[in-house]
Computed example of a mutant assay.
Amino acid sequence: MTTHPLVTLHLWGVPGRAVPRAVLRMATGRPALARLPGLRFAKLLGTGDGRTFTVRDADPRRWGLLAVWDDDAAADALEDSPVAASWRRIADEEWSARLRPLAARGLWSGREPFGDPRPQRWDGPVAAVTRARLVLRRAARFWSAVPPVSADLHRAPGLRMAVGIGEAPLGLQGTFSVWDSGASLNAFAYDRAPHAAVVTRTAQEGWYAEELFARLAVLSTRGTLDGTDPAAG
């Protein structure tokens, strides 16, 4: 296994009339994904605005795929695959990013999807992926703590985009965000009071049965969301 896998994130926007077909693809798309050569890890994702991490955040008109590949050639093959073609048949917009892991800790479905990269310097824009599986009996306290952090995130200096991601409407949730630099991400993670308070409470109250945090270099982006590339500088 190489030390630097390639990570891709695709987001597809669909018109309202295509939402049932998007839901069907979420339910049936995994076998086709699993057949793609060079694929190490993949998750089909629903999206939302991440304001509360409850079902009322969900955006049924935007869906995603996060995947980890052996190399660029494997990721290239996705673009010409039946998986991508099936989403493009119903999508009215598409945005994608290519990313390289810079640092990662934790598990996603019992695995380390981004490996165990040695922390390294990167002077360009940086993406952050967070994902957690809640301890359901503690979920209410978690949900009550989210809104101040989310509001602060969306006004944080250096944030280019942020979207909630999840494999299920409840209990499994995360975020994908893009920042001007590692320094701006650090400032939000460690210096902003709402986020620091939630980090402290997470350790004290044991909200998560499983959690992951990863930092990734943004190598390139393509396409649009709501008419623009939200990650472009």
Rank of each mutant, 00 (worst) to 15 (best):
T3V: 06
T3F: 00
H4W: 08
L6T: 15
T8A: 06
L9H: 05
H10W: 09
W12A: 12
W12K: 10
W12E: 13
G13M: 03
G13Y: 04
G13D: 08
P15H: 15
G16M: 11
A18Q: 13
A18T: 04
P20A: 11
P20Q: 12
R21E: 06
R21D: 09
R21M: 11
V23W: 10
V23H: 06
A27P: 08
G29H: 05
R30H: 13
R30F: 09
A32V: 01
A34N: 13
A34W: 09
L44H: 02
G46D: 01
G46I: 07
T47E: 00
G48L: 07
G48N: 04
G50T: 05
T54M: 07
D57T: 09
D57C: 08
A58H: 09
R61P: 03
R62A: 02
L65E: 02
A67S: 14
D70V: 05
A75Y: 09
A75W: 00
A75D: 10
D80T: 13
D80H: 10
P82R: 04
V83T: 05
S86V: 03
W87L: 05
A91M: 03
A91K: 10
A97S: 13
A104Y: 04
A104D: 10
R105V: 05
W108A: 01
W108G: 06
R111T: 10
P113N: 04
F114I: 08
G115Y: 03
G115V: 06
D116L: 06
P117V: 05
P117H: 00
R118V: 08
R118K: 05
Q120K: 02
Q120I: 03
R121S: 09
W122V: 05
W122A: 12
V126R: 13
V126D: 03
A127P: 06
A127W: 02
V129K: 12
V129C: 09
L136D: 14
R138L: 13
A139D: 07
A140I: 12
F142S: 12
F142M: 15
S144H: 14
V146D: 12
P147D: 11
P148C: 09
V149M: 03
A151I: 00
L153P: 07
P157D: 05
P157A: 00
P157G: 00
G158L: 10
G158V: 04
A162S: 15
V163G: 01
G164N: 00
I165G: 05
I165W: 09
A168R: 12
G171E: 01
L172D: 07
Q173C: 10
F176L: 15
F176Y: 11
S177N: 02
V178R: 00
W179G: 07
W179H: 04
D180H: 12
G182P: 08
A183K: 12
F188I: 00
A197S: 01
V199D: 01
V199Y: 01
R201A: 08
R201N: 03
A203K: 10
Q204A: 14
E205V: 11
W207A: 01
E210I: 04
E211I: 07
L212M: 15
L212K: 13
L212H: 15
L212R: 15
F213V: 15
F213P: 11
R215K: 14
R215W: 12
L216P: 10
L216V: 13
T221G: 07
R222V: 10
R222Y: 03
T224V: 11
T224I: 02
L225G: 06
D226Q: 14
G227I: 13
G227S: 07
T228S: 14
P230E: 12
P230I: 05
G233C: 11
